[in-house]
Amino acid sequence: MRLYLLALNPTDSVTEGFLPAAARLGLDVTVLTDQPEAHRRSVAADVEVLECDVRDFRAVITRISTHHAPDAVFTNSDHLQTQAALAADYFGLPAKDWRATLRVKDKAQMRRHLAASGLDAVWSTELSPGQDPVSLLALDVPYPCVVKPREGVASEDVVLVEGPEELVLRCKEIQVRRPQAPLVVEEYLAGELYTLETLGDGNVRHVLSGFHTRLSAPPYFIEERLVYVPHHPEPVLEQVLAQLDALGVGFGVCHTEFVVHDGRARIIEVNYRAIGDQMDLLLRRLLDIPLFEHVLRTHLGQPLPADLGARTEGAAVVDYPCAHGAGTLTAAPAAADLVVDGVELTYRPLRAVGERHGLYHTNRDYIGVLRAVGEDQATVDRVAADYLAAQRWEITP
């Protein structure tokens, strides 16, 4: 059976998760990508890599049509969900609804759809490429508000704004960096930030678990720490699932971010793919199920079992040491795998010593990732904190 996997840059989710899972399932894999050399350096020798303009669904369909017949078309990229859905549908293969993938990728459209459904109304407006942000001053903008690219990811150019003058300034700054990107201005949703991880086959939907997210100090929204939440409270879960149903999300794997304030759950964004930044690798370990294989099976048209047999307890935390200034990384710990007081610690550097970077105010500021897994949250927190306190990261301006 032939799996076509659409990708932009290589990611841990693909190289350590989905490609090994495809091999275990006995699939022949063709990676379609606009960065073929980068993928050829990161994949096994038996994985075929072909160059393709994967942002254009027509190019994807043509590339597949002139190659081997497909049994599944899949992507874990935020940017390519609609292209993969359209290509799969063209070939009569199981796929996400392209309307749903487009609806959740376009943050303004997601807001309009949820408001029309009657489930949640968030004040928001769009700023077109080239539109003068001064035009926003004629609107009744609620402050504080959030400015972000309409189709952005990873908190890139997402910023909290306190007043009109700052709103105009921030929008102009982002327009310089992203002149072709439409922007969204929306009311700030207060509350504690959580995630919900789900997996469905179009008929059955499994709630896998979630995380409680700690963010950096305002005005930016960098995810610095995530604590495992095996079970969300039922009233909260029902609210989030109702909003996902309204958006048409139910096939394959999905990562949803939402806030809870006074018992009310409100979606921040829906990433119609697996949770990233090595969190999906952690989730597989916590649930003790073949997570990546299950995801691929849904795209092969195979139904999910009524019971995944997932482990329902456990404790975990993920910490992302961040750079707090621009410069060259001159000292940092090496990769490590340890067991301390029954807690499994996995540390992986995300920057090499000697690399020079700017300060981005996004997850591109991550210089490493620590995963800690155990049975008791207090012990996991202590062991992770002790490990981080013993390490040293130095950035030379």
Results as ranks from 00 to 15, higher is better:
6 L>N: 04
9 N>P: 05
11 T>R: 05
13 S>I: 11
13 S>A: 12
16 E>C: 10
19 L>Y: 05
20 P>K: 02
23 A>G: 12
27 L>K: 00
32 L>E: 01
36 P>D: 07
38 A>H: 15
42 S>W: 12
42 S>M: 15
44 A>N: 09
46 D>L: 14
47 V>C: 15
51 E>C: 02
52 C>T: 15
55 R>F: 02
56 D>R: 01
61 I>S: 00
66 T>I: 10
74 F>N: 00
75 T>Q: 00
76 N>L: 00
81 Q>W: 01
82 T>K: 00
88 A>V: 02
89 D>A: 11
93 L>W: 10
93 L>M: 13
95 A>G: 00
95 A>K: 00
97 D>R: 03
97 D>A: 06
104 V>K: 04
111 R>Q: 08
112 R>V: 15
115 A>T: 15
116 A>C: 11
116 A>M: 11
119 L>R: 12
121 A>Y: 07
127 L>R: 05
127 L>T: 06
128 S>R: 02
129 P>W: 13
131 Q>Y: 07
132 D>E: 09
133 P>N: 06
137 L>E: 14
143 Y>L: 13
143 Y>H: 11
145 C>K: 14
151 E>W: 12
152 G>S: 14
159 V>R: 03
163 G>S: 07
165 E>F: 07
165 E>D: 13
165 E>S: 08
165 E>R: 10
170 R>Q: 12
171 C>I: 12
180 Q>E: 10
180 Q>S: 07
181 A>K: 09
188 Y>R: 07
191 G>W: 08
191 G>K: 05
194 Y>K: 09
200 G>R: 06
202 G>W: 13
202 G>F: 14
203 N>W: 06
205 R>Q: 14
207 V>D: 08
207 V>Q: 09
210 G>V: 05
213 T>M: 03
217 A>W: 06
218 P>K: 07
218 P>M: 09
225 R>E: 15
227 V>Q: 02
228 Y>Q: 01
229 V>Y: 08
230 P>F: 07
232 H>I: 09
234 E>M: 08
235 P>Y: 10
239 Q>T: 05
245 D>F: 09
245 D>A: 11
248 G>Y: 12
252 G>A: 01
260 V>K: 06
262 D>E: 15
264 R>V: 09
266 R>G: 14
266 R>V: 15
267 I>V: 15
267 I>S: 04
268 I>G: 15
273 R>G: 01
276 G>A: 13
281 L>N: 12
288 D>V: 10
292 F>Q: 01
296 L>I: 05
298 T>D: 01
298 T>Q: 02
299 H>A: 03
301 G>Q: 13
308 L>E: 04
308 L>K: 05
315 A>E: 13
317 V>K: 04
321 P>C: 06
324 H>Q: 14
325 G>Y: 08
325 G>P: 13
330 T>A: 03
332 A>F: 15
335 A>N: 12
339 V>I: 09
342 G>S: 13
344 E>W: 14
348 R>H: 05
355 E>P: 11
355 E>T: 13
357 H>W: 13
362 T>R: 14
362 T>M: 14
364 R>M: 08
367 I>L: 11
367 I>Y: 06
368 G>R: 07
369 V>Q: 02
373 V>F: 07
374 G>L: 08
378 A>V: 04
380 V>Q: 03
383 V>S: 01
383 V>H: 02
385 A>W: 05
388 L>G: 08
390 A>G: 04
391 Q>L: 10
392 R>E: 12
393 W>H: 04
395 I>R: 04
395 I>S: 04
395 I>F: 09
